[in-house]
Design a protein around this nucleic acid. Structure first.
Length: 256
DNA sequence: TTTATTGT
């Protein structure tokens, strides 16, 4: 992680940190009321604003259960939350880059499917976002930066629709290509997928950090081995806020 | 068993 961040900071001024925030598995069955249930009836929270509302004629959008699974342990923040078929995103209009994306990975969901063809996917603007704030392909063209996935395409290869939905530009951040997005970051993504061999449930939250950060002594710092709280403070987000820290450490789905 | 750009 250290090198990834540093490279990105130096090269682009934007550091992208996969704040892989934890693996949590609750052995009990799902409680009747999830956090999602509490939010779903609140006005003005566009949980289904992107795709499902337009594609489903069911009174209950099909992605509802999936969204509640992904967000089972809480939202890091609630700014412009958008739900896709297999990941959830909070969008930052000022930067045209997400605040965070949230994924729930299991051995089954990351399973490689030969029938899925990534080369058929196109990077596409997210039309659900007002044109003032929408990232366009022209923003990236000849910029020198890759359109780097936050929710990785390789995490959503179970069906074509899911992988296609990772190609919205709302799921991209400008990333240095050679050495970072195509190398170290790619290795990190593979590592996260590999965690599903060891843990039943892997919750992955990814987003950009804009570093370095000025600390109390007035100097700018980029630090790497840091506790989760440092990421929360730098990102302005809270991870698994409704889960006690001790429970998160001791209860997980580690496979024997 | 992946991640991408550019130019056509």
């Amino acid at each position: 992680m250290a090198r990834l961040l540093k490279k990105c900071v130096i090269a682009s001024g934007i550091s992208i940190a996969s704040f892989y925030c934890g693996i949590y598995y609750d052995k009990k069955t799902t409680s009747n009321e999830t956090l999602f249930d509490k939010f779903k009836n609140l006005p003005g929270l566009p949980l289904y604003g992107t795709v499902s509302a337009a594609t489903s004629f069911s009174p209950v959008p099909q992605s509802m259960n999936r969204t509640s699974q992904i967000m089972k342990y809480g939202f890091p923040s609630l700014d412009n939350v958008k739900s896709f078929s297999d990941y959830v995103l909070s969008y930052d209009r000022r930067t045209r880059v997400a605040h965070w994306v949230f994924e729930h990975l299991t051995k089954e969901t990351v399973k490689y499917n030969d029938a899925v063809d990534r080369s058929l996917c196109n990077f596409m603007p997210d039309e659900s976002i007002h044109h003032f704030f929408r990232a366009e392909n022209s923003d990236y063209l000849r910029s020198g930066y890759d359109r780097g996935h936050l929710a990785a395409a390789g995490n959503h290869r179970c069906c074509q629709k899911d992988v296609e939905q990772t190609f919205y530009l709302s799921n991209m951040a400008p990333q240095v290509g050679v050495g970072f997005n195509r190398d170290s970051w790619n290795r990190l993504e593979k590592y996260v997928r590999k965690l599903t061999k060891k843990y039943i449930n892997v919750y992955c939250c990814t987003g950009p950090l804009y570093l370095p950060r000025k600390e109390a002594d007035g100097k700018n710092y980029v630090k790497y081995e840091v506790p989760p709280e440092a990421i929360e403070r730098a990102a302005g987000l809270l991870f698994f806020d409704n889960v006690s820290r001790s429970k998160m450490k001791t209860i997980n789905g580690k496979k024997s």
